[in-house]
Computed example of a mutant assay.
Amino acid sequence: MPSRSRPEWLGPETDDITPAVSTSSHAFQAILDDLVRTLDAPVGPPAAAAGALSADDAHSLTAPASSPSAPPSADDTALAGPPPARLQGRGDLTIVVGLGGDAREAARILAEGADAAVHPVADRRAALAARAEGVRRGCAIVAPVELDAVDAVAALAADLASIAPDQVWVAVDVSRRLDDTRRWVGEVDAVLAVDGIAATGARRTAGPHGLAALARPVLWLDAPPA
């Protein structure tokens, strides 16, 4: 399974939310320097994150029937263990890969639970810009990565790998075909080791959800199966 190392400029991992750093700090300057080298162009003052979760967005997002922090079922944790804690450090980057709107919905809910901002990313450039925005604002970033088809991962593999996220979730609607889900989730895991499954849709199917077969921790974003 691929491993990810934490960027040196972020310092050691911590569970605490560290106050926002000044734009004159060494950490922030290191990110901007990396952006300049990557983009080969001067970088101006960071703009507001594209797609950041606004107060209106948060208000309009209907609370799920069950809190995202609700414990998963015993069947889900038997093999994979509990879901990972959501990252809250400034500049921490979590990506959520899913089919279409599944990724956006899951990213919003995960971000709300971590006081993080939502900022879509597609490649290394966007990831560096998102991290810089997180450092500037003193928060973590949750980035949706939308797949337009179950076989889309192969074409995106290089860009996905270049993002080098700190945590990876897959957004899974369990009412979709399990064979399709196992296919694209397995392809994502081969490129970026998947840390957890953000699951929805248990009420939209009468069949078994089959998430245990994916052997990853599960966090239900809506009502879990009975």
Rank of each mutant, 00 (worst) to 15 (best):
R6H: 04
L10S: 02
G11T: 08
G11I: 07
E13W: 11
T14K: 01
T18G: 08
P19N: 05
S25P: 13
F28D: 00
A30C: 09
D33H: 13
L35S: 08
D40A: 13
D40S: 13
A47Y: 03
A47Q: 13
A49K: 00
A50Y: 01
G51F: 04
A52E: 13
A52K: 06
L53K: 09
S66C: 10
A70P: 09
A70N: 06
L79Y: 14
R90Y: 00
I95F: 05
V97T: 07
G98W: 00
L99A: 11
L99Q: 14
G100V: 15
G100F: 09
G100L: 11
G101Y: 00
A106H: 01
A107K: 01
R108M: 14
R108L: 11
G113Y: 01
D115L: 06
A117E: 12
A117G: 03
V118W: 05
H119M: 10
D123I: 08
A126E: 14
A132L: 11
V135M: 13
R136S: 03
R137T: 07
E146Q: 10
D148V: 15
A155T: 15
L156R: 14
L156V: 03
A157V: 12
D159E: 12
L160H: 05
L160C: 07
I163M: 03
Q167K: 04
V170C: 15
V174K: 01
V174R: 02
S175W: 14
R176F: 13
R176V: 07
R176N: 13
D179C: 06
D180V: 00
R182L: 12
V188M: 11
V194Q: 07
D195P: 05
T200Y: 00
T205I: 05
A206G: 15
G207M: 08
G207N: 09
L211K: 14
A215L: 07
A215M: 03
P217C: 06
L219N: 11
D222K: 08
P224H: 03
